[in-house]
Amino acid sequence: MRLLLSAELLKLVKQSKTYYALGSIMVIETLILITAYFQGSTILDLLLDNLKQSFYFEGTLLNGNLIMYIVLNSLWFNVPLILMIVTSGIVTDEYKDGTMQTVMLQAVKKWKFITAKYIIAVLFTILVIGFMMLTTFILAYAIFGGGDLVVYLNTLNFFEAKDAFHRICWAFASGAVAMVFYCVVSLTLAIFIKEAAKTWIAAALFLIITTLLLKVDFVIPAINSFFFPKLIDTWQQLFYYELDWTQILINNALLLLYTLAFGAAGTYVFHKKDIG
């Protein structure tokens, strides 16, 4: 297994898609920073116009913590789509160039081979989210500095700078769980579909449907509590004024179980199907 992991890691380091993914993250961050720099104050003034008539605000609310929160919102669609495209290529590329068939002719157990790919996909996802958090922190604080955070979730919530930073860090950790889920799903889809373009379409469709189902209130309460689309936005719960840590931990644990289930399904199918 160690040799398989080393080989998969080497492939990931050498393929250009890895660096395109990191570059795409930087582009998203840069666009957010540019927009915030030139138009952020105007947007905040519109948002807080009524409150400013009743309250006095000291300091600026356009700060590094707000920028980090805005970047976090790219976890809804942009970042998972990029990650799903890159991680699915771990399998589809090898089907396309015939590497998969060549490897299977060797004394390699199929379940170990595909498990190594899942592990590398997860590590890559965590690396990207860590890179995203670190670069955003450096750029946002260097340009805008620290400060209190204002978030609109049904109502305006205000958090002091220290509390805001802690919440943002935990939100990135919770968001990483959601991104790992999406990447494992994309790798499983790649095992079923094999072709890159079709897998990308299926992954994008899965992402869109999951996002839409998040907004749907089902009649059965259990579905609203345990169905995986309802768990994707757990990171955002960290920005409600009153934190329900028990529910946040349960949601992330359930999402990890769904991740394992999709991974197990992909491993089983890969182990049973003919590689051709």
Rank of each mutant, 00 (worst) to 15 (best):
F226S: 12
N50P: 07
A203Q: 01
L254I: 14
D274C: 05
A253L: 04
F226Q: 07
Q39L: 14
G276P: 00
A171H: 07
V128D: 03
L213I: 13
V184T: 11
Q53M: 14
Y20T: 15
L153G: 10
S88Q: 03
L134R: 01
I85A: 12
I126L: 04
K194Q: 14
Y118V: 09
F124T: 11
A202K: 04
A190Q: 02
L46E: 11
R2Q: 10
L31Q: 07
V108Y: 04
S88I: 08
A36P: 00
I201A: 14
Y141N: 11
T246G: 09
G263C: 02
I232W: 02
W245G: 12
C183I: 06
T188K: 00
A21I: 06
F206A: 13
L156R: 07
E94K: 08
T60H: 03
K194G: 09
N252L: 06
V150I: 15
M26P: 02
Y20A: 14
T115N: 03
A142Q: 05
P229S: 13
L212W: 12
V216D: 05
K52T: 15
I90H: 05
K109C: 06
G263S: 05
L10M: 07
T99M: 00
N78G: 13
S225V: 13
F270Q: 05
L4P: 02
D97K: 10
T135A: 07
V71T: 14
N73M: 12
